[in-house]
């Protein structure tokens, strides 16, 4: 029996990160992703076990080291961590949260990470994202589900001129091609 535990293939393999027009696009390596859903009363224990205190304020991300918790809804957070850490995190949270009710689901492969950087990042994203990305309207640390043309994304401003995108796996090739086109059309 072959051991395929390391045999991964990204849906974007072979599509390239950018055709180099401005070099604003890059693909992010695999990471662990978990969807935590539960009542707000559980968040304190999540913070202790996960090491990041999930934001209660809507559309805000909390970061600590290589871990992050992104507010997606009033009972929903996307937890990000290094690749391979998901099983340990699930175990840690189970210990910390018992006997409270919550839901924690590994979605590491459900979506793909992309990054748009540079002074044109806003313009590239606004080719398909209808939100106001001005730094006053969409400050560093803001995150939200929204749309990129015909696909849903999670958009997260990680720096003044850097946005991280999470795209559902089967929509990622579309999202990447769309962004590449937007970069060419600046």
């Amino acid at each position: 029996m072959p051991d395929l535990s390391q045999a991964r293939r990204s849906v974007l393999e072979g599509l390239g990160s950018s055709d180099g027009a401005h070099g604003a696009l890059s693909l992010l390596p695999p990471i662990s992703r978990l969807i935590f859903r539960g009542r707000i009363s559980t968040i304190g224990r999540v913070a202790a076990a996960f090491g990041v205190e999930p934001a209660m304020e809507p559309c805000r991300a909390a970061v600590s080291g290589e871990r992050a918790a992104l507010w997606l809804g009033p009972d929903e957070w996307l937890l990000l961590a290094r690749e391979g850490e998901a099983p340990a995190i699930i175990g840690r949270l189970a210990d910390a949260l018992a006997p409270l009710s919550y839901s924690l689901v590994d979605v590491s492969h459900r979506q793909v990470g992309l990054k748009v950087t540079g002074e044109d990042a806003q313009a590239i994203l606004n080719a398909g994202c209808p939100l106001d990305l001005d730094r006053h309207a969409f400050p560093i640390g803001m995150c939200t589900r929204t749309l990129l043309q015909k696909t849903e994304i999670v958009l997260w401003r990680v720096a003044e001129a850097a946005f991280q995108l999470e795209v559902a796996r089967s929509f990622a090739p579309y999202a990447l091609r769309f962004l590449q086109q937007a970069e060419r059309d600046l």
């Binding site: 859903r37 539960g38 839901s103 689901v105 979605v107 492969h109 459900r110 979506q111």
Partner: peptide
């Protein structure tokens, strides 16, 4: 009800 939904269509 204490239960929550997560789409896993693309996870698997």
């Amino acid at each position: 009800l204490d239960c929550w939904l997560t789409s896993t269509t693309e996870q698997w």
